[in-house]
């Protein structure tokens, strides 16, 4: 009886492992194809898409596409980097302050209305507000500028950041607040000196989300930066690849440039990514 169970367990195990292998291939093969074919000549790509012919690899595709008419790598990376870091910084600052008050005062009617208002923003499709946003940005002369996109992002990520951080602050005992209050501190000081230092994990969590989302975002910078002088990586690949589905040697090279940074970041910071992202979602 024990052997039977053992064999059945082994069989199940083998079966499950095979399923996992196939699933893993499904997830990794498209990436593999992109990376590998970026280094092959067009002929090689067409004749044997899956192969990695070490003797015929070329850097030509990459070199040719570093600065094409539609997509200059430096501008793309630069713009995306600035957007991602500055957005994250500003969101963290404004949202943390906001969420502190919201969390501590959640019984008050006024703040409950604000809570509902934030909820509204989480369900909105960004397309719905794009043209009014353009009008608003143009009134303050920020259309087609990086600052304009930043403002939109800060507003856009506010609900997510506030909810996540407010949830976390809820687990910090209010007695700390009271103790500081008795010592004569005002709310501003309580937040910056007592609460904020304790918010490390959730800040890291939110930061990771916002960096990844901003780096990968397409529609908002596409509409606001438009055909201006600056463009993000996502805009760049859309313009560069556009309608070409068959210029493989260029398409894959451009895609490799686009996903390269994420691959590198992922390889080095796997654990942080995965724990940060899931911790945040569950608490929220």
């Amino acid at each position: 009886m024990k052997t039977a169970v053992l064999i059945r367990d082994r069989a199940t195990s083998f079966f499950l492992n095979s399923v996992m292998m196939v699933a893993t291939l499904l997830f990794l093969v498209p990436i593999y194809i992109t990376i590998v074919n970026a280094f092959k000549t067009k002929v090689d790509i067409l004749t044997s898409p899956m192969d990695l012919p070490f003797d015929r690899l070329t850097l030509n595709n990459l070199a040719r596409n570093i600065d094409s008419e539609q997509f200059n790598l430096l501008i793309g990376y630069g713009t995306s980097l600035v957007l991602a870091t500055v957005t994250t910084l500003l969101v963290l600052i404004t949202a943390s302050m906001f969420s502190y008050v919201l969390s501590r005062r959640r019984q008050q009617i006024g703040y409950q209305y604000i809570y509902l208002l934030l909820l509204l923003g989480m369900m909105l499709p960004v397309q719905a507000i794009l043209l009014p946003i353009v009008k608003i940005l143009s009134l303050v002369k920020l259309m087609s500028t990086v600052w304009g996109v930043l403002l939109v992002y800060i507003g856009w990520y506010m609900p997510f950041a506030v909810f996540t951080m407010a949830g976390y602050i809820g687990t910090i005992s209010p007695q700390l607040d009271e103790a500081a209050l008795i010592d004569g501190a005002n709310e501003w000081q309580i937040f910056f000196k007592v609460i904020l230092p304790l918010m490390g994990p959730v800040i890291a969590s939110v930061a990771i989300y916002i960096i990844v989302w901003t780096w990968n975002d397409f529609v908002t910078p596409f509409i606001i930066l438009g055909s201006g002088d600056f463009y993000t990586v996502t805009m760049g690949i859309y313009r560069a690849i556009g309608q070409y589905t068959q210029r493989w040697e260029d398409v894959f090279a451009i895609l490799l440039f686009a996903i390269g940074p994420m691959i590198v970041m992922f390889l080095f910071m796997q654990r942080h990514f995965m724990s940060g992202l899931t911790a945040g979602a569950l608490k929220g």
Partner: peptide, 10 residues
């Protein structure tokens, strides 16, 4: 910022 960029546009 939230009001200006999200609520007002809606």
């Amino acid at each position: 910022i939230y009001l200006a960029m999200i609520i007002v546009p809606i």
